[in-house]
Design a protein around this nucleic acid. Structure first.
Lengths: 251, 251
DNA sequence: CTCGTCGAGTTAGAGCCTCTAACGAACGCT
DNA sequence: AGCGTTCGTTAGAGGCTCTAACTCGACGAG
């Protein structure tokens, strides 16, 4: 339980030469992973603002400045944790999609939504980390956009089987413009939903994303606290309604 | 432009006696308002983590510790800004509701949604402030729940005119339990939607809240950046779909 | 096996921050 | 005019991020 955040172990050394498994660099990678794990524990306990490099170092039995041999600074560490978070969420979504592979679309949508919520509520502060302003001048690096796409990918395959009606047609028209303007997005959609109309799949996925974030974001930030309902019920209703609006085949 | 955040000027002195307009306390209230305005400016520029009491004091021409005569600490100041933010949002919603008073429900729903989004995008960091973890150990005070209710109030009157179907019935059942369990919520709903079924109004409002937060939250956090669509289109489609699902009369 | 090199970890310190304590000085009230 | 309240100050404790300079042990080539 509780979402194991494995480090993705990206060995992006500055000098980028080979020989990634020298004993020196293996030790380095291990310490990096330990730092990330300890930092994640702090974030899980008190949110992003509570992350202190000094405290992390002390927890690992060394002094503060030592961490700067492994990360360029606090923001660098946060960025890696954010990327790991996206990867973790993407893995959870992909696993859910695989588990529900043969099921009808509506059921697959519910499976994906449930997986998304389970991942987010398993580590609420990490979810907030992906979408907040953790540091005064923090700027999310551009690669996070790709990783966010990886999280939403499985939705494309399911929602591409629907069709837009009513006000969603306006949304689809904008999606079509976006697709025409940016080939990587087009490739992304075609990779996940090859047989569907790309703009339809995209419109449905963006809508689903907004609904997922709506329910899960409020839940994670504790704004449902004291309310007498289970967020799962709301999420189920939201997905059911989306499936209805897109005409997804019932079970 | 961009949403004047007037201080709500709550004169909650500790000794709570009368005589709120003595020259001393009027000066005090004015300085408090200046502090809050300067702090808000910092937050608008760099988000909640960028708020520094020292910098605020320097900006007002005095030293850091002087602010502790006016606020118990950083969290206290943040709490007041959060409350002011809620009040501001509630005022914007109420104004929109008044402007669209005679219109059909569907149109009123769009007016409220547009007002909500306009308020949030006018001060994105303030929106994030209301729903984030601004400080390591920060705990939102209980009165924020009442203020959040004030923001959503106008939605009750509109959505109480719909009726739940499908999966929303489960949600409505939970709402009914909640209503039975907490009289203040019941009073709140009846104050805004006296002629409607309270559980239906509540279910619709919670759903609308989640959808508003879904679209606006993603937009405010910049996650739509680089995407080729206008969030307003998505929001319109979401509200239109909600109106359809609840059977709100068309224009 | 030896020795130069490289890097991990240290201390020292600058410059922020929040927040407390103690002190002068201005102000309003009686 | 005197007195108490309150405002703003300085001094300082303790924390943070991050840099600079140093020590020392381990790795790797000969």
């Amino acid at each position: 339980m509780a979402g194991s955040f494995g480090s993705s172990g990206s060995s992006d050394d500055a000098h980028g030469s080979g020989k990634a498994s020298s004993p020196r660099s293996r030790y380095r990678d291990q310490v990096r992973a330990e730092i990330k794990a300890a930092a994640l524990e702090q974030i899980r306990a008190g949110g992003a603002p509570a992350l202190s490099l000094n405290a992390v170092a002390k927890g690992l039995g060394l002094t503060g400045p030592a961490l700067y041999k492994y990360f360029r600074g606090r923001d660098d560490l946060l960025t890696e944790l954010i990327c790991d978070g996206y990867d973790d969420a993407a893995a959870a979504m992909r696993a859910a999609a695989d588990r529900a592979a043969g099921a009808p679309p509506r059921q697959r949508l519910h499976a994906l939504a449930t997986a998304f919520r389970a991942w987010a509520t398993g580590a609420p502060h990490v979810y907030q980390l992906l979408a907040g302003t953790p540091s005064p001048g923090y700027q999310a690096p551009p690669e996070t956009a790709d990783r966010a796409r990886a999280v939403l990918g499985p939705l494309l395959g399911v929602l591409g089987q629907g069709d837009c009606r009513g006000a969603a047609l306006d949304l689809r028209a904008e999606m079509r413009c976006w697709l025409n303007g940016s080939p990587p997005v087009q490739q992304w959609v075609e990779g996940w939903a090859p047989d569907a109309d790309a703009a339809t799949a995209l419109a449905g996925t963006v809508t689903a994303w907004a609904r997922l974030h709506g329910v899960v974001g409020l839940e994670v930030q504790g704004l449902f606290g004291g309310m007498g309902h289970r967020p799962g019920t709301l999420l189920h209703a939201e997905m059911e309604n989306l499936a209805d609006a897109l005409g997804l085949p019932a079970d």
